[in-house]
Amino acid sequence: MKNRQKQTTIPLQTEANARYTADQWAAIHLEGDNLLVSASAGSGKTSVLVQRILQKVRRGYGVDELLVVTFTEKAASEMKERLEVALQEMINEESDPDSRQHYLQQIAKLPQANISTIDAFCKQVIQRYYFLIDLDPVYRLITDETENMMHFENVWEALKEDLLAEGNPDYLRMSKHFASDRKDDKIDQLIFDLYNKSR
């Protein structure tokens, strides 16, 4: 089943699917444009995203052709579980043998589908394409706060040296206003504070 029909209109809501708001319904069915869905916690984003994925599957796409990123492993796992349940329901309700076969294939592909956290996806990209992107595939995440701060200071020191070596006018102006007695302590603290606030 590879119909992949381009959807130009949004289907009408019925009583059966009235649990979705008009905006949620549009988020599920809109195609062909960049789409930003912004909503607070507990507002049904996961449910809307699951329905959006199912709409693509109904139109002939495979779950292995989609990239779905979440903030937590728990959310990714929950999404896969919801998709499996919904696909099973679609199989039970489907009379067309080709469509049933397509839905069965999607359940089999779910464990390998790109439904994960953004960092898990980035890890996969690095490990698969390290030779193209010039990054070491053997790395670890910095989880210790002290080690993280030391790494940050090393990066900042290297960047500072580059800015001084090139005579960066913005850095020189900042240094003129904030440095004291030829020391950069105040500048360092300012940069650290800005970095922490931006996070």
Rank of each mutant, 00 (worst) to 15 (best):
R4F: 14
K6S: 15
Q7Y: 04
Q7I: 11
Q7P: 04
T8E: 15
I10T: 09
P11C: 04
L12P: 07
T14H: 14
T14W: 15
A18I: 03
R19M: 11
T21I: 01
A22R: 08
Q24Y: 01
G32I: 13
L35Q: 08
V37M: 13
A39I: 00
S40C: 10
S43L: 03
G44Y: 01
S47A: 08
S47R: 13
S47K: 04
L49A: 02
L49Y: 07
Q51F: 08
Q51G: 01
Q51P: 00
V57D: 07
V57F: 10
V57H: 03
R58L: 09
R58C: 02
G60S: 12
G60W: 02
G60P: 05
G62F: 00
D64A: 02
D64M: 06
L67I: 14
T72P: 06
T72E: 06
K74M: 05
A75R: 01
A75H: 06
M79D: 09
M79N: 06
K80D: 03
R82T: 10
R82N: 10
Q88W: 00
E89Y: 00
M90G: 12
N92L: 10
E93T: 04
S95V: 14
D96N: 11
D96P: 02
D98H: 07
R100T: 09
Q101H: 15
H102D: 01
H102A: 02
Q105E: 13
Q112D: 15
N114H: 15
N114W: 15
I115Y: 13
S116T: 13
I118P: 05
A120N: 08
F121V: 01
F121P: 12
Q124K: 12
V125N: 09
V125P: 05
V125C: 03
V125G: 05
I126R: 07
Q127R: 12
Y129I: 06
Y129F: 13
Y130S: 03
F131K: 09
F131S: 01
F131Y: 13
D134L: 11
P137E: 07
V138P: 05
L141Y: 00
T143C: 14
N148R: 12
N148K: 10
M150I: 11
N154S: 12
N154E: 14
E157T: 07
A158S: 13
L159G: 05
E161D: 06
D162T: 06
D162N: 10
G167K: 01
N168G: 00
N168D: 09
P169D: 06
P169I: 08
R173I: 01
F178H: 07
A179T: 05
D181K: 05
R182H: 13
K186N: 05
K186L: 08
K186Q: 02
K186H: 04
Q189R: 04
Q189G: 01
I191Y: 03
I191H: 02
D193Q: 10
N196R: 09
S198N: 11
